[in-house]
Computed example of a mutant assay.
Amino acid sequence: MRYSIFIMSFLLATSSANAQQITQQYLADFFAPIQEKSIADEREYCGYFGLNDAGKLIATKPKRGREDSCLAEPSDDMVEVLASYHTHGAFHYEADAETPSSADLEADIDEEVDGYVATPGGRIWKNDADREKAILLCGRNCTVSDPDYDSQAFPPVNGSYTLDGLYERDDAEY
């Protein structure tokens, strides 16, 4: 019985520590060089965070996507996939990219992993797969932002969105 309690305590402590490795500051620093490239190339970049066999947090090399989509695979070095990540590229008046899209959140829910999204305005979002909700982790200019970003082009962002809220924002006409 004591052995089982020890194992459970160890597993809980380990998973809690893993979740804490991906902090807001880590994400802001991690996304900065990727955002610069994403904005300059007007393309999304994407990848995964995970743990290697030593329990160290690792990330895949950012994969270049299209203007409004990106598809990557976790690394073979990952023994546990923790989350996906992607950028939304450069600012465009034709696309409200300051929140995750409903497709972004749906993909993370389907994959059963959290997702992190960096926007042209420098915001960072967490798609919480378990709660099925997009949550703003840090606001405007939290990481590198597009110098052409126009904060007046689209409605202000909320601090969180459910899938229904993202569907509404996706379907809104500006």
Rank of each mutant, 00 (worst) to 15 (best):
Y149P: 08
Y116R: 01
D29C: 12
P120E: 13
D146H: 03
A153I: 15
P33F: 05
T119C: 03
F30S: 09
T119G: 02
K37S: 09
G65H: 11
E67L: 09
R169V: 15
A28Q: 09
S9H: 03
V113G: 01
A118Q: 04
L82D: 12
L105Q: 10
C142N: 15
W125E: 11
P33A: 12
R2M: 13
F91W: 05
D148W: 06
E132C: 04
T14E: 15
I109H: 13
Q35W: 14
R66F: 10
K56Y: 13
L12C: 07
A28L: 09
Y85I: 10
E98L: 08
T162E: 05
S69N: 12
I34Y: 00
S160D: 14
I34M: 00
A13N: 00
V157I: 05
R140H: 13
I124W: 03
S16D: 02
Q152L: 12
L11F: 12
S4N: 05
I58E: 00
S160Q: 12
T14N: 14
Y161Q: 03
K37Q: 14
L163N: 09
K37T: 11
D96T: 11
L166T: 08
S38N: 01
Q20A: 14
A13C: 10
Y3V: 06
L51V: 13
Y48P: 01
A19K: 08
D146R: 03
T143S: 10
T99Y: 04
Y174W: 15
I135Y: 08
A118M: 02
W125M: 06
K56P: 10
A172Y: 03
R66K: 15
A134K: 07
G165D: 14
R66Y: 15
K126I: 04
P120S: 02
E73Y: 13
D170M: 12
H86L: 05
A103K: 13
D170P: 04
I7M: 07
E36L: 12
R66P: 07
H88I: 06
M8I: 15
I135V: 14
S9L: 14
D170A: 03
M78H: 01
N18E: 02
Y116F: 10
L51T: 10
I7A: 15
A83Y: 06
N52H: 09
S16Y: 13
T119H: 01
C138F: 10
F6D: 10
F10Y: 12
Q20D: 11
Y48L: 00
N158G: 13
L82E: 05
L51S: 03
D29R: 04
D53Y: 00
E111T: 05
D148E: 15
E98F: 05
P62N: 08
Y45V: 00
E173P: 12
Y3H: 15
P74M: 04
D171F: 08
M78G: 12
D76F: 07
K61E: 13
F30Y: 15
N127Y: 06
Y3C: 08
Y167E: 09
K126G: 11
K61G: 01
W125H: 14
G65W: 05
Y167H: 09
Y93E: 09
E36N: 10
L51I: 13
N141Q: 15
E112A: 15
D170C: 05
A13K: 06
A54L: 10
C46F: 00
I135W: 04
V81M: 03
R43D: 02
D114A: 02
L82Q: 03
A97Q: 00
I109G: 11
E168A: 11
